[in-house]
Design a protein around this nucleic acid. Structure first.
Lengths: 136, 136
DNA sequence: TGCCTCCTCATACTAAAGTACCAAAGTGCT
DNA sequence: AGCACTTTGGTACTTTAGTATGAGGAGGCA
């Protein structure tokens, strides 16, 4: 909100400056009239592109990028996060254990902790929640 | 590619027209100088926003689109696909049954069929496969 | 009408998943 | 060294998930 006001303030300021500049150049005859017009056109074209890009970036759904800060905020440990990733690709506890060279018991412990931390009832739900949180 | 050329052609044309217009108005004195500048600024600002939006839209990855043809190819029935969607949001068989007004037995049957058709061993894996196939 | 497919539901069973504890070893920090 | 936390693993138990099989009803179709 604050940024928007500042941006538009600067825009109006630039507009006024251009007004004055154009007036001055017309009187002194230093610059050709077409060049002033072209300059104004160019500047505002660039401003338009820039502002639009910024606003679109804000509205864009942050897809693909993993939010590591959120992982910390959820208190997920490295191991738990590893297990969560394996769950998301559809492996069973036994398969995860074999893949990470751990016993099934250990995986179960991790899974239980993951479910608590993600506030999920099932591993399927945990995956869904994790994806919503941009964790996966 | 063709569109880009046409667009930029039109842009240059507009620029030239504005040049001529501004010259004319200066001579005739019909319009004030500031207004011409403001007009040019506004027009090119809008052009900037518009062009940028278009180019960004093009570069966007066409994600999120569901491939209904693939659903047919997999022989997934409507009910099975419905159940699959509920699985993907992390519901248990009982919860799915309550949501669709069906017994848990029915859901289990559907789930079993889904697993066979998607060549999955677990519901978690089925979700993963379905997402890879753009089914979800 | 008979056939076929889908949908529904049930029973009985096996296999995973998940919970609740407990406990030991490792790690990092002070 | 002592503390806090993670990682690992175990036992015992409950709850879901998944398989196998059968069976009746609904709708489309030749």
């Amino acid at each position: 909100m604050k940024k928007t006001i500042v941006t538009f303030g600067l825009l109006i300021l630039a507009l006024l400056l251009l007004f004055q500049l154009s007036k001055y150049t017309m009187v002194s005859g230093d610059l050709r009239f077409e060049i002033v017009i072209a300059l104004v056109a160019l500047v505002f074209f660039i401003i338009g592109v820039y502002l639009n890009k910024r606003s679109l970036r804000k509205n864009k759904i942050p897809s693909g990028q993993i939010d590591f800060k959120k992982i910390e905020a959820l208190d997920l440990s490295k191991r738990e996060y590893e297990v969560l990733k394996e769950i998301s690709i559809g492996l069973s506890n036994k398969e995860i254990g074999e893949k990470l060279f751990l016993s099934e018991s250990t995986i179960k412990t991790h899974v239980s902790n993951i479910l608590v931390k993600l506030n999920a009832k099932r591993r399927t739900q945990a995956v869904q929640i994790a994806k919503e949180l941009q964790i996966l």
